[in-house]
Nucleic acid binder design. Structure first.
Lengths: 102, 102
DNA sequence: CGGTATCCCGACCGATACTG
DNA sequence: CAGTATCGGTCGGGATACCG
């Protein structure tokens, strides 16, 4: 879990999106709503299965994404952004844009 | 120095602003241009002198802030945002705003 | 398929002391 | 005033193996 020593809003936000893969996961989920675990893996190949699971868990805990588990065999899950998570769109795009031109 | 394994623009940006105190330093410099070392310390009291120096050095290295050293005794330095750093304003404000209402 | 469990190393960061 | 040096603890995250 994220270490918590939050002072100001900007840090609150960064804590929630600055895990190693979180921002990329959110970014991917913005373009690909409702992704399965393996789909996310393919979209972010450098991220290990372990880390993907960890980051997804934290994002879910922070209420940025939600997880749907279908009780089937083999297992099937789907991840999507919550309303709260979707509100990050302009922020994520701002980060993306600044990084692109700088 | 920041570990570098950059894939996409959004991560480039986060690498540069998500050090423990970087975002706050930038935020402070947006409202208080041209800050001395001790002034920043007072603005961010929870940040140790050591960490402040480290973070400032990385921000300078990444071209987000610039440092002016006045050759006087006792020493006097001033930190301010570069043009590149100032362009982060909307991004930082976006982070701030999202954190404030969420 | 969608995860956990375990081991382990290096980066991050606090505390403290020293310096030009 | 504006830093640097050193030590040491914590923890993020990689590699690998296992599971329902």
């Amino acid at each position: 879990m994220t270490k918590q020593t939050i002072q100001c809003p900007i840090e609150r936000t960064l804590k929630q999106i600055s895990g190693k893969w979180k921002s990329v996961i959110i970014f991917r989920l913005l373009e690909h709503p409702r992704c399965r675990f393996n789909e996310l893996q393919k979209l972010i190949p450098e991220c290990s299965r372990r880390m993907l699971a960890l980051q997804l868990k934290e994002l879910e805990h922070d209420g940025l994404i939600s997880k749907t588990v279908y009780p089937v065999v083999p297992p099937k899950t789907e991840y999507s952004l919550t309303e709260r998570g979707k509100k990050l769109k302009p922020v994520i795009e701002g980060l993306q844009e600044w990084g692109r031109i700088n």
